[in-house]
Write a protein that binds this DNA or RNA. Structure first.
Length: 559
RNA sequence: UGGGGCGUGGCCAAGUGGCAAGGCGCGGGACUUUGGAUCCCGUAUUCGGAGGUUCGAAUCCUCCCGCCCCAACCA
């Protein structure tokens, strides 16, 4: 295993980090991945995780996992657990640096008091609607709240009573006193605290006022000594506020840098839309193998390595993007090609009878486990007179450039023998129910002995194979940009899941471990479903198909 | 006459004054007991547009065009 560590492609954030280290602005690198525990992580988060943890690793620093849990109404322990599980699975380690914004509630409260004392924050009695009204519009300045000029003493008193729970939800807020005429709406006296008499999954009922994102985030970064606070583009407008709070408080000041979030073709990435799919039962859950969630990709059979590689290849930049899902698929294929053991499985069985093969005879033929890895060894596959082959591997008449079985034609049975089709059996409707052939005993192992045999097909012994259910997945959406359609649900791919129940797999697969991955020769990569597969009922998920040149030819040839 | 960003091939993306990296995809070929893998070759006279500066510009200047984000007591 002499993996040449591919040179890390550079990007503007790495450049900025290098510069900050050189100029002495920061002495080391401390990053953080700050998910809100209100949903499952998806491939877009993987990009951020790889960036945050990757940079820390690269510069000998550290990366914190910090839950941004400032909105108890939407957050829960279920999500906290799922997120930690996913980050670990992806291969990253936060060591002892697990934090929660809720751990800082007291410190944040004290700092708020500090701002009130400095005359930089005030308690406002305006209702939510009024606050919106007073904010003005994109093109018109807002106007100051009538409560903006309350005295420090009064503000201090009111704020403390807010905390004690003397006022009902929504009746008061604490706001920073900045500039109601600012072009950047985030600076028009942003709300720092709102009253919410809701218990929090970690702090219980200790608090009834909760900090807003902007008030919590920068200060949390500061407390933890974060150097580079990396986030997505939509927070660019928040940076002036991030900086304002830190400066107003006069505390350690990390640097926020924004990058473009990932968009993947043929799927949706917004938490709101993913939640809709889950809640409306359009998918089986957050871990449905068609979902772009890490839980879904994991169940689909994706490897952490492939996802990390993908994250590296897409790069980090500031331009809006839509990455072709074909790149993600390429990454798993590349990873699995060199690691997955090969097996034979017939998804849509067609009976093949070898007329001149002795009745009752069984041979154990040797098959290579992985041609890409000589250490993977070989296995024995039972061969007998009656086999199952793929329905697609027999055509009568054969279309142009078809290399597989058809009347009078010879084909190789992978690792077995060369067989020649002698005829077919059809049912009353004319459908082929059985293919007949003879074999060449001298071609054992598949040796064509000089002959040109263009096709090689996979097979399974009818009586020795094991039954299995196979689930074939396709893109969740039928268009590249479902987000741009009026109703994204109208463009769901109706064929995103195809369940095949009569599949036959080679006996070696009988005891396959849940989650284990294989390449089914000539078909694709599959993994044993981790939830619904059992020894008595094997269930396999197709991670991704193999590149299919024949499909392209067939498509180009006509229909 | 609101603010903040972004525009390099079908999709990502390097490049930051010296004459367009790389990857995916696509097309062609070699090889092949997976029509897989692997290996070759091809794929932007041009960098949103128009001017300008310069011996020389995707890179600097000016104007224009287009796209994205922001008016939750969400993050």
């Amino acid at each position: 295993m002499s993996e040449e560590p591919r040179e890390k492609p550079s990007h503007f954030i790495r450049d900025a980090v290098v510069e900050d280290l050189q100029t002495g602005r920061f002495k080391g690198v401390v990053t953080r991945f700050p998910p809100e525990p209100n949903g499952y992580l998806h491939i877009g988060h993987a990009k951020a995780i790889a960036l945050d943890f990757g940079l820390a690793l690269e510069f000998g620093g550290r990366c914190h996992l910090r839950f941004d849990d400032t909105n108890p109404a939407k957050e829960s322990q279920e999500y906290v657990d799922a997120i930690m599980c996913d980050v670990r699975w992806l291969g990253f380690d936060w060591g002892a640096h697990l934090y929660y914004a809720s751990d800082y509630f007291q410190q944040l409260y004290d700092w708020a008091v500090q701002l009130i004392r400095a005359g930089r924050a005030y308690v406002d009695d305006l209702s939510a609607d009024q606050v919106a009204e007073y904010r003005g519009t994109l093109t018109q300045p807002g106007k100051e709240s009538p409560y903006r000029s309350r005295s420090v003493v009064e503000n201090l008193d009111l704020f403390e009573r807010m905390r004690r729970g003397e006022f009902p939800d929504g009746t008061k807020t604490l706001r920073a006193k900045i500039d109601m005429a600012a072009g950047n709406l985030n600076l028009r006296d942003p709300v720092m605290y709102r009253i919410r008499k809701t218990s929090h999954h970690r702090t219980g009922d200790a608090w009834c006022i909760y900090p807003m994102y902007d008030w919590a985030h920068g200060q949390s970064d500061s407390i933890e000594g974060v150097t580079h606070s990396l986030c997505t583009l939509e927070y660019e407008d928040h940076r002036p506020l991030y900086d304002w709070y830190l400066d107003a408080l006069g505390i350690y000041h990390p640097r926020q840098i924004e990058f473009a979030r990932l968009n993947l073709s043929h799927t949706v990435m917004s938490k709101r839309r993913l939640l809709t799919l889950v809640e409306e039962g359009l998918v089986s859950g957050w871990d449905d193998p068609r979902m772009p969630t890490l839980a879904g990709l994991r169940r689909r059979g994706y490897t952490p390595e492939a996802i990390r590689d993908f994250c590296e290849r897409i790069g980090i930049a500031k331009a809006d993007n839509l990455v072709d899902v074909a790149l993600l698929e390429h990454c798993v294929r590349e990873d699995l090609n060199r690691r997955a053991l090969r097996r034979m499985a017939v998804l849509r069985p067609l009976r093949l009878v070898i007329e001149n093969y002795p009745e009752g005879q069984v041979e154990e033929l040797e098959a290579v486990n992985n041609p890409e890895d000589s250490l993977a060894g070989t296995r024995k596959v039972p061969f007998s007179r009656v086999l199952c082959i793929e329905q697609d591997d027999f055509r009568d008449p054969p279309p142009p450039k078809y290399f597989r079985l058809s009347p009078g034609v010879e084909v190789r049975l992978r690792y077995a023998y060369i067989v020649k089709c002698t005829g077919v059996v059809r049912d009353a409707a004319g459908a082929v129910t059985e293919v007949r052939c003879t074999y060449d005993p001298a071609s054992r192992g598949g040796d064509a002995r000089g002959r040109k045999v263009k096709g090689t097909i996979h097979w399974v012994s009818a009586s020795h194979s094991v039954r299995a259910e196979v689930r074939l997945y396709d893109n969740l959406f039928s268009v590249p940009k479902p987000d741009e359609v009026e109703d994204f649900k109208s463009v769901l791919n109706r064929h995103s899941l195809e369940v095949l129940t009569g599949c036959r797999v080679e006996p070696f697969l009988a005891g396959a471990e849940p989650g284990s991955r294989y390449q089914f020769e000539r078909q694709g990569y599959f993994c044993v479903d981790s939830l619904e597969s059992s020894p008595s009922g094997l269930v396999l998920n197709r991670t991704v198909g193999l590149r299919d040149t024949w499909a392209k030819i067939e498509k180009a040839e006509g229909h």
